[in-house]
């Protein structure tokens, strides 16, 4: 097993981890909010939030090009500050985050909804403020769902291909993540590189899932009698 260039591996990990972080920071508070509020048009908002999961990644990529491309208002505003997103690894993070977001949102929302509201009320009557209620009751009880959201998001971000190719391109050493490297290695009949990357990705994904499954079972030991 030999790999001439390890940069796709490190870049993929960096992009996927950052995407998970971004998705967590936006997805968890949003899921918490949506799990406990009702308003007109909630179904529409929910549908929009889930859309990136069902759309073909090329459609998401095209949409991102329109939103953050050089000719978009946002792209031009960033350009005047000397920031370019398109064809950088930042764009790969954005693409991965957008595509993986619904997975985090859906599982975290379901986890929050499964937490008995009476327990939150009990904490309130015991003098806890909303932050303490969240961090000592809601979050620990929803933790299994949040972890599964993180794993799904990470897996999806790691495998992101279509949208990433459109907004970040395929620049070896700069924006070439594992899925892109595999595609172009196969395209160039570089079987050795493709084999190694495929093997690494499969093993890594397997170990992550195995670890999370074992870990989450141990975390919920308190439910055992």
């Amino acid at each position: 097993m030999h790999l001439a260039d390890w940069s796709p591996v490190f870049l993929s990990l960096k992009v996927a981890l950052l995407a998970v972080l971004v998705v967590c920071l936006i997805g968890v508070p949003l899921a918490r909010l949506m799990a406990r509020t009702e308003f007109h048009g909630k179904d529409i908002v929910e549908a929009v939030l889930t859309l990136p999961l069902v759309l073909p990644p090329s459609v998401v990529g095209y949409g991102l090009l329109i939103c953050i491309g050089k000719n978009s208002p946002l792209g031009q505003a960033l350009d005047s500050m000397g920031i370019t997103l398109i064809f950088t690894w930042y764009a790969a993070v954005i693409a991965s985050a957008v595509v993986a977001f619904p997975l985090m949102y859906q599982s975290v929302k379901a986890a929050f909804q499964s937490v008995d509201q009476t327990l939150e009320d009990a904490a309130r009557t015991l003098g806890a403020g909303e932050a303490r209620v969240f961090f000592t009751v809601t979050l620990p009880l929803a933790w299994a769902g949040i972890v599964s959201g993180i794993v799904l998001t990470f897996a999806r971000a790691l495998g992101e291909f279509g949208a990433t190719l459109m907004v970040a391109g395929n620049i070896p050493g700069k924006t070439q993540t594992i899925p892109l490297a595999i595609f172009f290695a196969v395209d160039a009949r570089d079987k050795a590189t493709a084999n190694t990357l495929v093997f690494l990705t499969t093993m890594f994904s397997f170990l992550v899932i195995l670890w999370v499954n074992t870990w989450s079972r141990r975390q919920r030991k308190y439910l055992e009698r």
């Binding site: 008995d116 009320d121 009990a122 009557t125 003098g127 439910l223």
Partner: peptide, 20 residues
């Protein structure tokens, strides 16, 4: 006043003990 400022204890019907 919110519940946390009322200083009123509440024993819930199904106890509502924190399972974790």
């Amino acid at each position: 006043l919110p519940p946390r400022e009322r200083n009123i204890g509440y024993v819930f019907q199904d106890y509502a003990l924190f399972p974790h």
